[in-house]
Design a binder for these strands. Structure first.
Lengths: 128, 128
DNA sequence: CTTTAGCTACGAAATACATCGTATATAATG
DNA sequence: CATTATATACGATGTATTTCGTAGCTAAAG
């Protein structure tokens, strides 16, 4: 039996994953520079975090050159699911519909987006 | 200008809020007993957590009797919004639609629920 | 070749959080 | 009245997370 831990990434790790997902791969420098637009911390902080993520297996890296290049080991989708499920459980009484309704209600959504949702909704109705 | 901190409740706090929301108000004993179904910890742990929440202003309490009765100071809806927004930001590239699509796609949703969503969707389309 | 700039490694401190043990007060029980 | 059960208060510990400073390596610039 293989150990199934699959720990959620932390806040800080999530911010870094975000950059890696957007760029496909990135150096510490790039990640740090990007994060600076959002938060404020030293370069070595970002570095350390990414090193920890590497040790955890959350990211891979190519260290054949001086500048190490990192890539995410988890997909955005898988992580989204992970957090969504957690959230549905702990905040929406287990009902994904509640979450959807709340999310739809909160934000103003463009016509384009409403269409996308309608399409998916139709598909779901089909399969019934 | 009033200080706008509004810190997110932690995991543990969320579990407690959940019970308070469901029961409207509750003693430490009740909260603890309920939590035991889900997690495993000592009574004083729950107590301490609730005391901290009180100090933070996350909950109120009636301590006129020996058994203190707690109530949530934040609504479920407000907290849901808080977490949803955070999540949309950090995991869904700012698009609530992405979140909705992902949430709908993951779980199997009953016909009843699909209808509810359809109703809201129609309303949103109307207001365009 | 020496200096400088940029990089990684790593220990250490600061912070946040969850957990528990012990002290103390008080109501209920016998 | 003494004992027991049940409350709250609170300090202390353990662990996770974040942050930073410093050391050491190497390539580029002078």
């Amino acid at each position: 039996m293989t150990s199934v831990k699959s720990n959620k990434p932390t806040e800080g790790e999530l911010e870094i994953l975000q950059v890696l997902w957007n760029n496909n791969k990135a150096s510490v420098r790039t990640v740090h520079e990007t994060l600076l637009k959002v938060k404020d911390c030293g370069y070595t902080t970002t570095l350390k975090l990414m090193q920890i993520m590497f040790k955890k297996g959350l990211v891979s890296r190519d260290d054949s050159n001086k500048i190490h290049i990192y890539t995410a080991n988890v997909t955005r989708e898988k992580t989204q699911k992970q957090f969504l499920n957690k959230m549905i459980d702990s905040l929406f009484a287990g009902s994904s519909t509640n979450l959807v309704l709340q999310a739809l209600g909160n934000h103003k959504t463009s016509n384009e987006e409403l269409k996308k949702i309608q399409v998916l909704l139709n598909q779901l109705k089909q399969t019934k």
